[in-house]
Write a protein that binds this DNA or RNA. Structure first.
Length: 417
RNA sequence: GGAGAUGUGUCCGAGCUGGCUGAAGGAGCACGAUUGGAAAUCGUGUAUAUGUGCACAAACGCAUAUCCUGGGUUCGAAUCCCAGCAUCUCCGCCA
């Protein structure tokens, strides 16, 4: 959520924002404004009536204490009560609709974000390493893994359906090694605190980070319990401090957590269907930061660098892409994607996404901080993958492959095997 | 899953035979007085949200709401009723 006062006073700016984000029709800003105005007059009205009722009730109490029985006055106040009740009912409806619309308004974009329609308009900001050269035709990871007997897609389908897979032997061990390596790097060298929490969370948590209410179709929800499987540990980590006021001295807070991530991938049918690239369950090491507002863009650069460091140590060629206005997610004000080179697929593949949400999530989730002697204010949240483990496994298989159909283990992972 | 108990401010803790209680008392914290300095002592202050006033913002004023959450009864609810949630105890179950 962005500050409702900003919307109130800058209708045109918000409309422009929707244009740039390629979601012009997605939110009815005029309706939002109209509802906001109506609810404010009703709040005023209701408050005035309550004031009247409070003072009248007080008088009634005093009169009764003196032994009188002010029947007329009580009748009168009862009518006020009825009026309040009907205003409250209308107000409830309005507030609900207002919140619905308000939650749908995307975040303000940072000035540095290029205007563009989709991923074709994203801007490559840097590259690291170079594409490996092979004196044979490099194969995709799923062919290598399947023929080695370490990736089993058929049995994944048998167990759970399309886009599920099974790791056997080396693949399972290697992914575990990847996760441990990444966690060690982020905790021992980058200053993150290793955290572990629920993979299943309630609706408030899913709303706090922006998954609900708009994108309900993309996640697995257990309706009888009102709980959802997390699509990323960002949900668990960012909601840790929901409805809390943190002391300023505790900031910044850096957290990392490994989790399985569950996504329906609705609407992605037919895209990247093969292999480990797009699946319903994958493992990921997540990075989340809670910071003071003035520092959040510096923190974004550092966060992205932390994720890049994983690829550098694995010696995998990658590039960093600044997402354009149309490709940046609604909660984010600025996002860098890190894309690793996949020789077998012959393209770059997103392996991390690092975003600065400003106070957008903090406002939804009511995460604030307080300096001594000052009022509480919303802090800024950031997150990034550090990295997606399954895709890292796929990248290693493709980049480290040998002509004989097997692959090497990156040097830094050997001690984890 | 079954039975019972509990749920008040930063914390402890009164109130719960309905009105004068945003909430006694204590602790903590902040500031001030006292002191050569400190302890002790004394004084003052110590929530959040929303709306509104001041051209805006800050500060401030006013109003409303908040005693786990949501409903209800009542002229009026922290106090009564209902539902939910959480914690604790006992039983059941279990990696």
């Amino acid at each position: 959520m962005i500050d409702p006062k900003i919307i109130r006073d800058n209708i045109e700016m918000i409309k422009e924002l929707l244009q740039r984000r390629n979601m012009a029709g997605a939110v009815d800003i005029d309706e939002l404004k109209a509802i906001d105005e109506e609810r404010r007059t009703l709040i005023l009205k209701a408050d005035e009536l309550r004031e009247k009722r409070n003072s009248a009730s007080k008088t009634i109490g005093q009169l009764k204490a003196k032994g009188q029985d002010p029947v007329d006055m009580m009748k009168e106040v009862q009518l006020i009560g009825d009026e309040i009740k009907s205003i409250e009912q209308r107000l409830n409806d309005l507030n609900e609709r207002f919140r619905e619309l308000h939650l749908s308004v995307p975040n303000i974009l940072d000035k540095s974000v290029p205007t563009g329609k989709d991923d074709k308009d994203n801007v490559v900001v840097r590259e690291w390493g170079k594409k490996p050269q092979f004196n044979f035709e490099p194969k995709p990871h799923y062919d290598i893994g399947t023929s080695m007997g370490i990736l089993d897609f058929e049995r994944g389908v048998k167990l759970a359906g399309a886009r599920f897979y099974v790791y056997r032997g080396l693949a399972a061990t290697l992914e575990r090694a990847i996760i441990n390596f990444m966690l060690d790097l982020h905790t021992k060298e980058h200053g993150y605190t290793e955290t572990f929490g629920p993979f299943i969370v309630n609706d408030e948590s899913m709303t706090g980070t922006g998954q609900y209410p708009k994108f309900k179709d993309e996640y697995y929800r257990i309706d009888r319990d009102g709980l959802s499987l997390i699509p990323t540990a960002e949900v668990t980590l960012t909601n840790l401090f929901r409805d809390e006021i943190l002391e300023a001295e505790k900031l910044p807070i850096y957290l990392t957590m490994q989790s399985s991530c569950f996504r329906r991938e609705a609407g992605a049918a037919g895209r990247d269907t093969r292999g480990l690239v797009r699946v319903h369950q994958f493992q990921k090491v997540e990075l989340v930061k809670f910071v003071e507002p003035e520092t959040s863009f510096d923190e974004l650069e550092k966060l992205t660098a932390n994720a890049e460091e994983v690829l550098k140590r694995l010696n995998l060629h990658y590039r960093v892409v600044l997402l354009c206005s149309g490709d940046t997610s609604a909660s984010s004000s600025k996002t860098y994607d890190i894309e690793v080179w996949m020789p077998g697929l012959n393209r770059y593949m997103e392996i991390s996404s690092c975003s600065n949400f400003l106070d957008y999530q903090a406002r939804r989730a009511m995460i604030r901080y307080k300096k001594k002697g000052e009022k509480p204010q919303y802090l800024h949240t950031l997150n990034g993958s550090g990295l997606a483990a399954g895709r890292t496994l796929a990248a290693i298989i493709e980049n480290y492959q040998r002509e004989d159909g097997t692959f090497d283990i990156p040097e830094v992972l050997k001690k984890y095997m």
